[in-house]
Protein backbone atom coordinates (compact mmCIF):
# COMPACT_ATOMS: atom_id res chain seq x y z
CA UNK A 1 0.00 0.00 0.00
CA UNK A 2 1.38 3.39 -0.99
CA UNK A 3 1.46 6.04 1.70
CA UNK A 4 -1.89 7.82 1.29
CA UNK A 5 -0.36 11.09 2.37
CA UNK A 6 2.39 11.29 -0.26
CA UNK A 7 2.20 14.59 -2.08
CA UNK A 8 0.80 14.47 -5.62
CA UNK A 9 4.10 15.78 -6.96
CA UNK A 10 5.89 12.69 -5.66
CA UNK A 11 3.74 10.58 -7.98
CA UNK A 12 4.83 12.27 -11.18
CA UNK A 13 8.08 12.90 -12.92
CA UNK A 14 10.06 16.02 -12.14
CA UNK A 15 8.43 19.05 -13.74
CA UNK A 16 10.48 22.08 -14.64
CA UNK A 17 8.66 25.33 -14.22
CA UNK A 18 9.74 27.96 -16.78
CA UNK A 19 11.76 30.73 -15.21
CA UNK A 20 9.33 33.40 -16.38
CA UNK A 21 6.62 32.10 -14.05
CA UNK A 22 8.68 30.37 -11.39
CA UNK A 23 8.28 33.16 -8.85
CA UNK A 24 4.50 33.44 -9.14
CA UNK A 25 2.12 32.40 -6.45
CA UNK A 26 0.34 29.18 -7.49
CA UNK A 27 -3.36 29.47 -8.38
CA UNK A 28 -5.29 27.48 -5.77
CA UNK A 29 -8.72 27.68 -7.32
CA UNK A 30 -10.74 29.27 -10.07
CA UNK A 31 -14.40 30.17 -9.80
CA UNK A 32 -16.36 29.59 -12.99
CA UNK A 33 -20.11 30.03 -12.54
CA UNK A 34 -22.37 28.00 -14.81
CA UNK A 35 -25.81 29.23 -15.76
CA UNK A 36 -27.88 27.02 -18.00
CA UNK A 37 -31.52 27.66 -18.80
CA UNK A 38 -33.86 24.83 -19.70
CA UNK A 39 -37.45 25.05 -20.89
CA UNK A 40 -39.37 22.07 -19.64
CA UNK A 41 -42.52 21.38 -21.60
CA UNK A 42 -45.04 19.10 -19.91
CA UNK A 43 -46.21 16.26 -22.12
CA UNK A 44 -49.97 16.03 -22.81
CA UNK A 45 -50.73 13.62 -19.95
CA UNK A 46 -48.84 15.85 -17.51
CA UNK A 47 -50.63 18.92 -18.87
CA UNK A 48 -53.97 17.21 -18.31
CA UNK A 49 -52.88 16.25 -14.79
CA UNK A 50 -51.78 19.79 -13.92
CA UNK A 51 -54.90 21.40 -15.41
CA UNK A 52 -57.12 19.07 -13.40
CA UNK A 53 -55.59 20.47 -10.20
CA UNK A 54 -57.19 23.83 -10.93
CA UNK A 55 -60.55 22.04 -10.66
CA UNK A 56 -59.43 20.39 -7.40
CA UNK A 57 -59.22 17.02 -9.15
CA UNK A 58 -56.37 14.51 -9.13
CA UNK A 59 -55.87 12.39 -12.25
CA UNK A 60 -54.18 9.02 -12.44
CA UNK A 61 -53.19 6.75 -15.33
CA UNK A 62 -54.62 3.26 -15.66
CA UNK A 63 -52.38 0.52 -17.07
CA UNK A 64 -53.81 -1.36 -20.05
CA UNK A 65 -52.06 -4.50 -18.78
CA UNK A 66 -53.72 -5.10 -15.43
CA UNK A 67 -55.58 -1.92 -14.53
CA UNK A 68 -53.01 -0.68 -11.99
CA UNK A 69 -53.43 3.07 -11.44
CA UNK A 70 -50.41 5.36 -11.34
CA UNK A 71 -50.34 8.87 -9.93
CA UNK A 72 -48.96 11.22 -11.09
CA UNK A 73 -49.67 9.99 -14.65
CA UNK A 74 -46.43 8.71 -16.15
CA UNK A 75 -47.49 7.89 -19.68
CA UNK A 76 -46.12 4.37 -19.32
CA UNK A 77 -46.49 1.40 -17.02
CA UNK A 78 -42.93 1.06 -15.67
CA UNK A 79 -43.27 -2.68 -15.16
CA UNK A 80 -43.95 -3.39 -18.82
CA UNK A 81 -42.92 -0.25 -20.68
CA UNK A 82 -46.48 -0.19 -22.01
CA UNK A 83 -47.94 3.14 -23.09
CA UNK A 84 -50.88 4.34 -21.02
CA UNK A 85 -53.63 6.49 -22.45
CA UNK A 86 -56.51 6.05 -20.03
CA UNK A 87 -56.90 8.71 -17.32
CA UNK A 88 -58.94 8.13 -14.20
CA UNK A 89 -60.12 10.64 -11.64
CA UNK A 90 -59.02 9.81 -8.12
CA UNK A 91 -60.33 10.65 -4.70
CA UNK A 92 -58.52 13.33 -2.71
CA UNK A 93 -58.57 10.93 0.25
CA UNK A 94 -56.11 8.19 0.97
CA UNK A 95 -53.71 6.85 3.58
CA UNK A 96 -50.10 7.34 4.63
CA UNK A 97 -48.11 4.48 3.11
CA UNK A 98 -44.92 5.61 4.78
CA UNK A 99 -43.40 8.85 6.03
CA UNK A 100 -40.34 10.79 7.12
CA UNK A 101 -39.96 13.44 9.83
CA UNK A 102 -37.39 15.89 8.49
CA UNK A 103 -35.35 18.30 10.54
CA UNK A 104 -33.53 19.90 7.61
CA UNK A 105 -34.66 22.84 5.50
CA UNK A 106 -35.27 22.28 1.78
CA UNK A 107 -33.64 24.71 -0.63
CA UNK A 108 -36.40 26.96 -1.95
CA UNK A 109 -39.03 25.96 0.63
CA UNK A 110 -38.66 28.61 3.33
CA UNK A 111 -42.38 28.25 4.03
CA UNK A 112 -41.90 24.90 5.80
CA UNK A 113 -41.53 24.86 9.57
CA UNK A 114 -39.02 22.33 10.79
CA UNK A 115 -39.55 19.52 11.64
CA UNK A 116 -42.12 18.65 9.01
CA UNK A 117 -43.58 15.35 7.82
CA UNK A 118 -43.34 14.25 4.20
CA UNK A 119 -45.26 11.11 3.34
CA UNK A 120 -46.05 8.67 0.57
CA UNK A 121 -49.76 9.26 0.13
CA UNK A 122 -51.66 6.30 -1.30
CA UNK A 123 -54.90 7.71 -2.74
CA UNK A 124 -58.05 5.65 -2.74
CA UNK A 125 -58.17 4.13 -6.21
CA UNK A 126 -54.42 4.47 -6.90
CA UNK A 127 -51.90 1.63 -6.71
CA UNK A 128 -48.72 3.62 -6.05
CA UNK A 129 -47.96 6.39 -3.58
CA UNK A 130 -46.93 9.95 -4.31
CA UNK A 131 -45.26 12.51 -2.06
CA UNK A 132 -47.11 15.01 0.05
CA UNK A 133 -46.82 16.97 3.29
CA UNK A 134 -48.81 15.84 6.31
CA UNK A 135 -49.96 18.53 8.75
CA UNK A 136 -52.97 19.40 10.85
CA UNK A 137 -51.84 17.11 13.65
CA UNK A 138 -48.82 16.60 15.89
CA UNK A 139 -45.86 15.08 14.03
CA UNK A 140 -45.70 12.15 16.44
CA UNK A 141 -49.33 11.27 15.68
CA UNK A 142 -48.45 10.46 12.05
CA UNK A 143 -48.28 6.71 11.44
CA UNK A 144 -48.26 4.19 8.61
CA UNK A 145 -51.87 3.57 7.56
CA UNK A 146 -53.25 6.88 8.84
CA UNK A 147 -56.22 8.10 6.74
CA UNK A 148 -55.70 11.57 5.26
CA UNK A 149 -57.45 14.05 3.01
CA UNK A 150 -56.15 16.87 0.83
CA UNK A 151 -56.37 20.43 2.13
CA UNK A 152 -56.70 22.63 -0.95
CA UNK A 153 -55.79 26.26 -1.49
CA UNK A 154 -58.61 28.81 -1.62
CA UNK A 155 -60.60 28.77 -4.89
CA UNK A 156 -59.19 32.11 -6.04
CA UNK A 157 -55.59 30.87 -5.56
CA UNK A 158 -55.95 27.67 -7.59
CA UNK A 159 -53.59 27.25 -10.53
CA UNK A 160 -52.49 24.49 -12.90
CA UNK A 161 -50.18 23.02 -10.29
CA UNK A 162 -49.86 20.24 -7.76
CA UNK A 163 -49.09 22.98 -5.24
CA UNK A 164 -52.86 23.54 -5.02
CA UNK A 165 -52.77 20.92 -2.29
CA UNK A 166 -51.31 22.67 0.74
CA UNK A 167 -50.95 19.51 2.78
CA UNK A 168 -52.75 16.34 3.81
CA UNK A 169 -54.59 16.21 7.14
CA UNK A 170 -55.95 13.30 9.15
CA UNK A 171 -59.59 12.41 8.49
CA UNK A 172 -60.06 10.68 11.82
CA UNK A 173 -61.24 7.50 10.04
CA UNK A 174 -59.91 4.16 11.32
CA UNK A 175 -56.37 3.52 10.08
CA UNK A 176 -55.49 1.03 7.37
CA UNK A 177 -53.73 -1.94 9.03
CA UNK A 178 -49.93 -1.75 8.55
CA UNK A 179 -49.89 -5.03 6.64
CA UNK A 180 -52.32 -3.57 4.08
CA UNK A 181 -50.82 -0.09 3.89
CA UNK A 182 -48.72 1.40 1.11
CA UNK A 183 -47.31 -0.90 -1.54
CA UNK A 184 -48.47 -3.96 0.38
CA UNK A 185 -52.05 -3.23 -0.63
CA UNK A 186 -51.24 -4.50 -4.12
CA UNK A 187 -49.93 -7.85 -2.87
CA UNK A 188 -53.00 -8.23 -0.65
CA UNK A 189 -55.23 -7.55 -3.65
CA UNK A 190 -53.62 -10.37 -5.60
CA UNK A 191 -53.73 -12.88 -2.77
Amino acid sequence: MTDPNLSPASLSEEIEIPESISGLEPVRSVRSPIKLIYDFVPSPPVQEYLRSYSKKKILGHRSPIDGAVFVPPRGVDPRHGALIEESVELSDKGHVGNFCVTNLPIPGRDDLDIPYVSAWIHLDGANVGFLGLVAGCENDEVHIGMRVQAVWKKEEELGNTAENILYWEPTGEPSVPVEKAGNRAWDQRNE
Partner: peptide
Protein backbone atom coordinates in the same frame (compact mmCIF):
# COMPACT_ATOMS: atom_id res chain seq x y z
CA UNK B 1 -35.61 22.81 -9.73
CA UNK B 2 -37.86 20.41 -11.58
CA UNK B 3 -41.19 21.80 -12.67
CA UNK B 4 -44.53 20.01 -12.40
CA UNK B 5 -43.68 18.30 -9.13
CA UNK B 6 -43.73 19.39 -5.52
CA UNK B 7 -40.31 19.50 -3.89
CA UNK B 8 -40.54 18.27 -0.32
CA UNK B 9 -37.77 15.73 0.05
CA UNK B 10 -34.56 17.09 1.50
Amino acid sequence: PQPFSVSINA
